[in-house]
Every structure is written in structure tokens, then in C-alpha cells.
């Protein structure tokens, strides 16, 4: 009985579209994170002098510093975006599926 029910949910459109949406969001955000990080790392390895360019003539601050700090902030923001989407979208769909069973 239980296994039949499980099969039914697994094959249902609601469940499939939820899985699809979830993995789309997860992979897109992961790809952005990985891409940002590895571009930065490759910049460090191949062109460190680019990160040493000053942000303006009268400044001693190099662009590497705002870039580095932005990556940290971006990492935090991306987790926030994920939580927002998941709380709003995924949890409701999940509830719907679980409600249907009952």
C-alpha cells in the first residue's frame, strides 16, 4: 500500500516538476558560485597583477580588495536567495504533495 502510494507520488507531475525546479535552482546557483570562485582563483594564479591595480590614482586600495570582499558577500547573498526561493516556492509545493496523500 505504502509502496504503491510512493510510486504514485514519484510518477506524479507535481513531484517531478518540484524536483526539476529544485535542481534547476540548485545547479544554477552552484554554477554561479563555482564560476565566480574559480575565475578568481585563476586570476590569482595567472594574472595576479590585475588584482593589484589601484581603484583610483590617489588611492592605495587595489581592486583585488573590493573583488575579494564582494565574493564573500556574494556567497552570503546567494545563500539568502536560495533560502528565499526555497521557503516561498518549494515548501508550498512540498506541502501540497504531502497534503494530497492524506
Amino acid at each position: 500500500m505504502r509502496s504503491n502510494l510512493k510510486k504514485k507520488i514519484i510518477n506524479s507531475n507535481e513531484f517531478r516538476s518540484l524536483v526539476k525546479k529544485k535542481s534547476l535552482v540548485s545547479w544554477v546557483l552552484s554554477a554561479i558560485t563555482l564560476l565566480t570562485y574559480f575565475s578568481f582563483i585563476l586570476l590569482v594564479a595567472f594574472f595576479p597583477e590585475i588584482l593589484g591595480i589601484k581603484i583610483s590614482k590617489n588611492s592605495v586600495i587595489t581592486i583585488g580588495i573590493p573583488i575579494g570582499v564582494s565574493i564573500i558577500i556574494l556567497a552570503f547573498i546567494s545563500t539568502g536567495i536560495y533560502v528565499l526561493i526555497a521557503n516561498k516556492e518549494f515548501d508550498q509545493k512540498e506541502k501540497k504533495i504531502l497534503k494530497k496523500i492524506k
Partner: peptide, 14 residues
């Protein structure tokens, strides 16, 4: 620091 931090979003997403 950046290297130590960026693992976290990945842990969350995946």
C-alpha cells in the same frame, strides 16, 4: 578566507 567560505553555498545548494 574566500576558499574556506565558498564551500558553504555549495553545501546549501546541493
Amino acid at each position: 578566507s574566500i576558499g574556506f567560505l565558498v564551500g558553504w553555498p555549495i553545501i546549501l545548494f546541493l
